[in-house]
């Protein structure tokens, strides 16, 4: 899912960086002093979740969970996921430097859209209906991320088109798995801590 330096054309890289900077600025505005600890700890937990490998057939995939991050953090998912990508690039050598912007955009924008579409549905109703909507949101976020990666590759040159299509179809099982995991994560969270979504959103308000 990480795009590396040198693969994309300059307009795509620059547009991605500008859009990501806008999203981060917007997300930072919603982060009051009182919400920073919650956002920081959640950002760290999503980093740790991405270390978890889930078996799928003979191989395994690592979790992204950007849908869940969006559902919990709203616009603050932009800076939170950016921080995760920055640390991955600097200390693990994953991804790249000039593509940080477009990578952030590809992962965080679907997270925010998932929150806008499903956020209210996930936080209300019974835990089970919330979990089902969360599952749909989680699968949607991965699908949108993969599509966004495919689009940024395709926009950089036609030669990437077959690779972009393959990336999308290869990720369909990942979408299903992320959806199921997000659903069960929300099911447990809403049962164990019914006010979880309120606690994160409303801290200090």
């Amino acid at each position: 899912m990480h795009i590396v330096d040198g693969a994309l054309s300059n307009p795509v890289v620059i547009a991605g960086a500008v859009a990501a900077a806008g999203g981060i600025a917007f997300g930072l505005r919603s982060l009051t002093l009182e919400r920073i600890p919650a956002a920081g700890v959640l950002s760290a937990s999503f980093f740790v979740a991405s270390l978890v490998h889930v078996p799928i057939g003979p191989s395994s995939v690592h979790l992204i969970m950007n849908g869940l991050a969006g559902l919990l953090l709203g616009w603050a998912a932009f800076p939170a996921l950016f921080v995760g990508l920055l640390l991955q690039a600097v200390f693990f050598g994953f991804g790249g430097l000039t593509v940080l912007g477009i990578n952030t955009l590809n992962i965080a924008l679907p997270a925010v859209i998932a929150w806008l579409l499903f956020g209210r549905l996930v936080a209300s109703g019974t835990p089970l209906t919330g979990a089902i909507w969360a599952g749909i949101g989680g699968a949607f976020a991965i699908a949108a991320t993969t599509a966004a990666v495919a689009v940024s590759l395709a926009a950089s040159g036609d030669e990437f088109l077959p690779a972009a299509k393959l990336v999308f179809f290869a990720h369909i099982p990942v979408m299903v798995i992320e959806g199921i995991l997000t659903g069960f994560a929300v099911l447990l969270a809403r049962k164990v801590k019914p006010d979880l979504f309120l606690a994160v959103k409303g801290a200090g308000v």
Binding site: A38, L42, A49, L63, L68, F184, A185, L188, K193
Partner: peptide, 13 residues
């Protein structure tokens, strides 16, 4: 694994 992630989030919050 879903429950694992959910538990991690609850504890994190």
């Amino acid at each position: 694994f879903g429950y694992l992630v959910g538990m991690m989030l609850v504890r994190a919050v």
